[in-house]
Computed example of a mutant assay.
Amino acid sequence: MFGDIMGMMGKLKETQAKVEETKKRLDTVLIDEESNDGLIKITVTANREIKSIAIDNTLLEDKEQLEDYLIINLNKAIEKATKVNETEIAAVAKEGMPNIPGMDMFK
């Protein structure tokens, strides 16, 4: 029994390391979001860090419209990045879960 616990602990540490590696890799996964009319383009990482924002000059004439574009498109980019992030982390975590009786809800 003690060996089983030690084996599970080792597996959990290994999984934790894989999750950390995945988080680092997600810093390099870029998500692009563009407004329907192409007036604003946003790039974020899968870890939800904004990398770039490109704004068409026509939006600079209307502060309210620019703010609306930023809010809408930043939220879309963050939503996409969150989905990628959660999917990748969950896949690594699920793969490394030890077989603990009664804990098969994660499989």
Results as ranks from 00 to 15, higher is better:
residue 19 V to D: 02
residue 19 V to G: 05
residue 20 E to K: 15
residue 20 E to S: 13
residue 20 E to C: 03
residue 20 E to W: 01
residue 21 E to N: 07
residue 21 E to V: 10
residue 21 E to G: 08
residue 21 E to M: 08
residue 22 T to V: 09
residue 22 T to K: 15
residue 23 K to Q: 12
residue 23 K to E: 05
residue 23 K to H: 05
residue 24 K to W: 02
residue 24 K to I: 06
residue 25 R to E: 09
residue 26 L to R: 14
residue 26 L to E: 12
residue 26 L to Y: 08
residue 26 L to G: 12
residue 27 D to W: 02
residue 27 D to P: 00
residue 27 D to G: 08
residue 28 T to Y: 08
residue 28 T to A: 13
residue 28 T to V: 07
residue 28 T to C: 00
residue 28 T to S: 15
residue 29 V to D: 10
residue 29 V to A: 10
residue 30 L to M: 12
residue 30 L to E: 12
residue 30 L to N: 09
residue 30 L to I: 15
residue 31 I to F: 04
residue 31 I to T: 03
residue 31 I to N: 04
residue 32 D to Y: 01
residue 32 D to S: 11
residue 32 D to R: 14
residue 32 D to V: 07
residue 33 E to I: 06
residue 33 E to T: 15
residue 33 E to G: 09
residue 34 E to P: 01
residue 34 E to N: 15
residue 35 S to E: 08
residue 35 S to V: 03
residue 36 N to F: 09
residue 36 N to T: 11
residue 37 D to K: 12
residue 37 D to W: 05
residue 37 D to E: 12
residue 38 G to K: 05
residue 38 G to T: 08
residue 38 G to F: 06
residue 39 L to C: 07
residue 39 L to K: 15
residue 40 I to P: 04
residue 40 I to A: 09
residue 41 K to P: 01
residue 41 K to C: 05
residue 41 K to A: 05
residue 42 I to C: 10
residue 44 V to R: 11
residue 44 V to M: 15
residue 44 V to L: 14
residue 45 T to H: 06
residue 45 T to D: 06
residue 46 A to F: 01
residue 46 A to C: 05
residue 46 A to R: 09
residue 47 N to P: 06
residue 47 N to Y: 02
residue 47 N to E: 13
residue 48 R to M: 12
residue 48 R to Y: 02
residue 49 E to V: 14
residue 50 I to V: 15
residue 50 I to L: 15
residue 52 S to D: 10
residue 53 I to T: 10
residue 53 I to F: 02
residue 54 A to N: 13
residue 54 A to M: 12
residue 54 A to D: 15
residue 55 I to P: 06
residue 55 I to M: 09
residue 56 D to I: 01
residue 56 D to R: 04
residue 58 T to K: 12
residue 58 T to L: 06
residue 58 T to P: 03
residue 59 L to E: 07
residue 59 L to K: 05
residue 60 L to W: 05
residue 61 E to Y: 03
residue 61 E to C: 01
residue 62 D to K: 00
residue 63 K to Q: 10
residue 63 K to Y: 04
residue 63 K to N: 10
residue 63 K to T: 12
residue 64 E to C: 02
residue 64 E to H: 07
residue 64 E to K: 13
residue 65 Q to N: 13
